[in-house]
C-alpha cells in the first residue's frame, strides 16, 4: 500500500513536469504550427543555470530557480528567432532547425557545465502519507506546476495579449487582418515555451539529475503528453503528463525500471496512430 502511494505521488510529480514541457510544445505549436524539438533543452538549461546560481553565484534558493526559468525564456526567444524569424520557413524546416539548435546547445552545455549529470537539492525533507515516506519536493513540483498551468490558462483566456495569441492559433490570416503580427506572437510563444520548459527543469532536477542530453527524454515525454490533446489543448497536456508519469512510475515500480521508456514511447506511438486513424474516420 505504502509502495503504491509512493509510486502514485512520485508519478504525479514527474507527470506534472512532463505536463509543463508538453504545455511548452502546445504553446508554441498553437501559434506557429512548429514542433519545437528543443523543448527539452529549455528544461536542462534552466536546471543548469539554477545550479550555477546556487553553487557559484551563491544565490538563495528560489532566486536561483527564477534565474534558471528566465534564462530558459530568453533562450526560447532566441531559438524562436532562428526557427521562425525568417519568412517562408516551413513548419517542418523549423522543426529541423530546432533539432539543430538542441544539438548545438549540447556543445554550450558541455562547455559550461561539463558532461556529467547535475542535481541539487530542492525542498528538504519528506512527509508521511498513508505510511509512505515522500519527498517534500514532490509537493512543491505538483503545486508549482498546477499554479503555472493555471496561470497559463488565465493568460490565454482572460488577457488581451493571450487572446491575441489564441487568435493567431485560431485563424492566422484573420489575425493579420486585424493587425496582429503573427510572427511576433510566434516569438512570444517561443519565449513562453522556454519559460514552461524552464519551470519543468528547475522543478525536476532535484528529483532526477539532468545531464546535457536529458533533453531528448524530456522532449519525448513532453511531446507524448502534448499529443494527448492533439498538441492544441493545455488541459489535455496536463492529463497526458499525469497519465504518462503515473504509468511510468508504476511500471518502474512493479515491473522493471528499464521498461519505463518502452511503455511511455509505445503509449505515445499507439496514441498517435489511434488519432491518425480517427482522423481518417472523421474525415
Amino acid at each position: 500500500m505504502s509502495a503504491l502511494v509512493e509510486y502514485l505521488i512520485s508519478g504525479v510529480a514527474i507527470g506534472c513536469g512532463f505536463a509543463l514541457v508538453g504545455s511548452g510544445f502546445v504553446a508554441i505549436f498553437r501559434v506557429t504550427e512548429v514542433i519545437n524539438f528543443a523543448q527539452g533543452t529549455f528544461a536542462v538549461v534552466a536546471g543548469f543555470v539554477a545550479y550555477s546560481g546556487l553553487t557559484s553565484a551563491g544565490a538563495p534558493q528560489g532566486v536561483a530557480e527564477a534565474l534558471g526559468v528566465l534564462a530558459a525564456g530568453a533562450l526560447g526567444l532566441a531559438f524562436g528567432g532562428a526557427a521562425i524569424g525568417r519568412k517562408h520557413t516551413s513548419p517542418l524546416a523549423s522543426l529541423v532547425i530546432t533539432l539543430g539548435l538542441a544539438v548545438t546547445a549540447y556543445a554550450g552545455e558541455i562547455a559550461i557545465w561539463g558532461d556529467q549529470p547535475i542535481s541539487f537539492s530542492g525542498l528538504q525533507g519528506d512527509f508521511v502519507l498513508a505510511g509512505a515516506h515522500l519527498l517534500r519536493q514532490y509537493l512543491l513540483v505538483i503545486g508549482v506546476a498546477l499554479l503555472v498551468l493555471l496561470g497559463l490558462g488565465v493568460f490565454f483566456t482572460r488577457t488581451y495579449l493571450g487572446k491575441g495569441m489564441t487568435a493567431c492559433a485560431s485563424n492566422r490570416f484573420a489575425a493579420e487582418v486585424v493587425g496582429i503580427s503573427v510572427r511576433r506572437m510566434g516569438l512570444l510563444s517561443f519565449a513562453l515555451g522556454g519559460l514552461l520548459g524552464g519551470f519543468a527543469g528547475v522543478l525536476l532536477i532535484p528529483i532526477q539529475p539532468l545531464s546535457f542530453n536529458s533533453d531528448i527524454d524530456l522532449a519525448i515525454s513532453g511531446f507524448a503528453a502534448a499529443i494527448f490533446g492533439g498538441l492544441r489543448s493545455f488541459e489535455m497536456a496536463l492529463v497526458g503528463g499525469l497519465v504518462l508519469g503515473v504509468a511510468e512510475s508504476l511500471v518502474g515500480g512493479y515491473v522493471q525500471a528499464s521498461y519505463e521508456t518502452v511503455v511511455a514511447l509505445g503509449g505515445m506511438l499507439l496514441l498517435m496512430l489511434w488519432q491518425a486513424r480517427r482522423r481518417v474516420e472523421l474525415a
Binding site: 488581451y160 487572446k163 491575441g164 489564441t166 487568435a167 485560431s170 485563424n171 490570416f173 484573420a174 489575425a175 487582418v177 486585424v178 493587425g179 496582429i180
Partner: peptide
C-alpha cells in the same frame, strides 16, 4: 476579408475586441 475569417473558437465578444488590436 472575403469569407469572413472570424476567430471561430473565440466568443463574439472576443472577436470584436480583437478588432481593436
Amino acid at each position: 476579408p472575403e469569407g469572413r475569417h472570424l476567430f471561430y473558437d473565440l466568443s463574439v465578444e472576443d472577436n470584436l475586441s480583437l478588432g481593436a488590436w
